[in-house]
Amino acid sequence: MTTLYGRACPAVPLVEALERAGFTEATALLCSPQDFRVARFSQGRCRTHTGAPAPLDTVFEARVFDGHRELRWLTFAGQDTQCVLLSEEPDALPAEFGSPLPELHALQTLPAHYLLWGTPAPKPIRTSDGDWTVLRTPRIGSLHVPAPPPPDGQRLRLAAREYVCVEPRHGNAHVAEERLLRLEPAEPPDPEAAAGPVPEREHDV
């Protein structure tokens, strides 16, 4: 049995939500009307691959994660927001973040992976906060992600954890929640599995 804990924050700007969460180092997925951006949260701010602060004023949805916790922030028309912080470690959720959410008791957890589009450039972009990789594909162009280039022949993927719960009335098992963990190298291609089901789910970033 695995328990997922959470806290909900009242309507606050994204910058304040990040401050309340207390991240030290984390990866941020930022959606705005203009673009989708992956940023690195370090030293109290989100930065791009150039080292400049990532623009947060136009972001309408953000997911920030460090392997132990995930922050979800979403704004709606009228400037109302929803903000939650999730973790399997209750002590990792600051009391000042907000009110506790009902605990989620999972019978089982499963690994989930989303394959990132694009071929990684072999040469990293080095910054004071760490290495970045450029992913390139003709369909979406280039995307900079805060992770070192993977070994030759591999791509990058987004790792997550699924929480399987049992519906109390009928006893059906279902994935009740998912938490993002990290960016990591994908497994090298397996020629014998080429004709079988695709083990990765492609993520359109």
Rank of each mutant, 00 (worst) to 15 (best):
T3D: 04
L4T: 03
Y5W: 06
Y5G: 03
C9K: 02
A11K: 00
V12L: 13
V12T: 07
P13R: 07
L14Q: 07
L14E: 09
V15A: 15
E19D: 12
A21L: 02
F23W: 08
A28I: 10
L29Y: 07
L30P: 12
Q34W: 09
F36Y: 12
R37E: 15
V38T: 14
V38P: 03
F41P: 04
F41V: 03
S42H: 10
S42R: 10
T50R: 12
G51A: 08
P53E: 12
P55K: 01
P55T: 05
D57Q: 12
F60P: 00
A62N: 05
A62M: 06
R63K: 13
R63Q: 14
H68V: 06
H68G: 15
R69D: 05
L71H: 02
G78T: 09
G78L: 07
D80F: 05
D80K: 11
D80H: 12
C83P: 07
C83R: 04
V84Y: 04
P90N: 08
L93A: 01
P94H: 11
A95T: 11
G98D: 10
P102E: 02
E103H: 05
L104R: 14
H105A: 13
H105Y: 00
A106R: 03
T109V: 15
A112N: 05
H113G: 06
L116T: 05
G118S: 09
G118D: 08
K123R: 14
K123T: 14
P124F: 05
T127G: 13
W132K: 11
W132R: 08
T133H: 10
V134Y: 03
V134W: 09
R136C: 10
R139H: 10
R139W: 09
G141Q: 05
H144R: 05
V145A: 09
A147R: 02
G153Y: 03
Q154N: 04
Q154P: 00
L156I: 06
L158I: 02
L158G: 02
A159K: 03
A160G: 06
Y163D: 04
V164R: 06
P168E: 04
H170S: 06
N172R: 12
A173T: 09
A176E: 06
A176T: 05
E177T: 01
R179M: 15
R182E: 15
L183S: 14
A186Y: 07
D190S: 11
E192V: 12
A193D: 11
A194K: 03
A195R: 12
P197W: 01
V198W: 01
H203E: 12
